[in-house]
Structure formats: structure tokens, C-alpha cells
């Protein structure tokens, strides 16, 4: 298993840097992920998306559909790509500390 140091913690991650122990996530981890992708400050809009993603994941064991994310946050897809450079699945989910989605999604 790969390891990665983020926000002063040693985290278990997959080969794409997604956290494997979602319980250890905190806001600093999200900021540190953002910084790695060149987003040095997380705005309220970032947090709106991240908080929704994370709470949805914790409740349902899966990331929300893009359509849902768009509807809940009110951000169109383009906006989500502006906020998260690699897009909702590859950046937002990662920053929110949830595992990478696999299996035909």
C-alpha cells in the first residue's frame, strides 16, 4: 500500500493518491490535496461541494452522481471543473477523503 504525507499526517493512499482510511480526513487534508493540484485556497464554493460529497459518501457508501452534485450545489459541470482541476471524480472526491470510485462508473 502506498503512503503519502499530507497535512502533517502519514496517510494510506491508493496508487492515485486517494485516501484509504476516510476516518482520518480533516479539513487540512483537503487543503493539502488542493495545494498539490495548485489550488492554494479553498473557497466557500469548494467547501459546499466537498461537504456535500463527503456527507453523501458517509451516508450512502458511494459518491453521488454528477447530476446530483450539480443539482445540490447549483454549480454547472464547467464550474465544477473550474473549482476542481481534475474534475469532480478525480479531484473533488479525492480532496473530500473518499476512495476512488471503481466498477463501471
Amino acid at each position: 500500500m502506498a503512503k503519502m504525507e499530507l497535512a502533517g499526517m502519514m496517510l494510506e493512499v491508493d496508487e492515485h493518491g486517494f485516501m484509504q482510511e476516510t476516518d482520518r480526513w480533516n479539513q487540512d487534508v483537503a487543503r493539502a490535496y488542493g495545494a498539490l493540484e495548485g489550488v492554494n485556497e479553498l473557497t466557500e464554493e469548494h467547501w459546499a461541494a466537498l461537504n456535500y460529497l463527503r456527507s453523501y459518501y458517509l451516508e450512502n457508501g458511494i459518491c453521488p452522481m454528477i447530476r446530483r452534485l450539480i443539482k445540490e450545489t447549483g454549480f454547472p459541470l464547467k464550474k465544477l471543473y473550474d473549482l476542481f482541476p481534475e474534475g469532480p471524480a478525480n479531484s473533488a472526491c479525492k480532496w473530500a477523503g473518499v476512495p476512488k470510485s471503481t466498477g463501471c462508473v
Binding site: I62, T102, G103
Partner: peptide, 16 residues
């Protein structure tokens, strides 16, 4: 394999 559970599947389709 997506981790989609029955209740979440139903909920998603309701939304859709």
C-alpha cells in the same frame, strides 16, 4: 461493484 446499494439505487432513480 460501484458500491451502489439497493436503497441508494432506488433513491438515485427516484431523483432521476
Amino acid at each position: 461493484p460501484t458500491g451502489l446499494r439497493p436503497n441508494v439505487a432506488k433513491d438515485n432513480l427516484e431523483f432521476l
